[in-house]
Design a protein around this nucleic acid. Sequence first.
DNA 1: CTCGTTGCAAAAGATTTGCATTATG
DNA 2: CATAATGCAAATCTTTTGCAACGAG
Lengths: 138, 138
Amino acid sequence: MTSSEKLKAAGLRVTQQRELVLAALDAIRHGTPEEILVDVTKHSPGVNLSTIYRCLEVLEKAALITHTHLGHGAPTYHVVDGDPHIHLRCSKCERGFSLPATLASETVATIRIENGFQVDPYHITFDGQCEKCAQENK
Amino acid sequence: MTSSEKLKAAGLRVTQQRELVLAALDAIRHGTPEEILVDVTKHSPGVNLSTIYRCLEVLEKAALITHTHLGHGAPTYHVVDGDPHIHLRCSKCERGFSLPATLASETVATIRIENGFQVDPYHITFDGQCEKCAQENK
DNA sequence: CTCGTTGCAAAAGATTTGCATTATG
DNA sequence: CATAATGCAAATCTTTTGCAACGAG
């Protein structure tokens, strides 16, 4: 499905900026608003950061994208498509990793049954230490 | 263990401000830097917000506390003691919930075995919809 | 043509930093 | 007494908002 089709399907207006944001996320997979702007600017200079924020908000509300917090600063956005994945973030080296969300499916199911809480599988982040840093830390 | 003892055990200098921050987190369980300052100020006016930030940084590095991101704005800090717990955050009503971290232990173990990544059980947040909001959403 | 979107600039909120002062070990 | 920690103010970074101009439906 093209960006334009996704927007229409969600009942949103199709603007160049929204298409560019979706295209940027398709290209870079994950990115902060700032990083998204960089990619958008490559294809069409003059787009404003606040427009990026507003697009992200709308797109997230329409469930076309989600975001997650990796580290302190800016949040990371990514498209909702293909397989949901969970994020791992190493608190030492600050690198991010992705894993299939199926790994957490049991936990997600348990939480739903026992607490009625529906975890969004696109939006899971685990913090910790990656293999490399854990070794160096010994 | 008293706050002062915790600090000593971690090899940190025992300052009134650090004790106050630990005491505040003991009292309120979870809080943003701003909220922590409010509690600290109750017991000792004149402490500066930047000191709170610096204390939090040091305490987190010493593994006495951790933080997690509930929602967009400020991060939430909490003490590392007793039972680790995971956070649930409803993206509709913005409320937060706590559950014992044992719920996620299987997932955490799998990730460790398959990817060598050591998830910090104190630092898990799931986003999604709480029971109430999920119902209203039908 | 109408109303939602955007660009721009300014405001607001969160976090960090330089430096003189104070307090811990 | 040396050095780390703090208070204060200013700087930075991130996100939001008001408003006029523009563009999609």
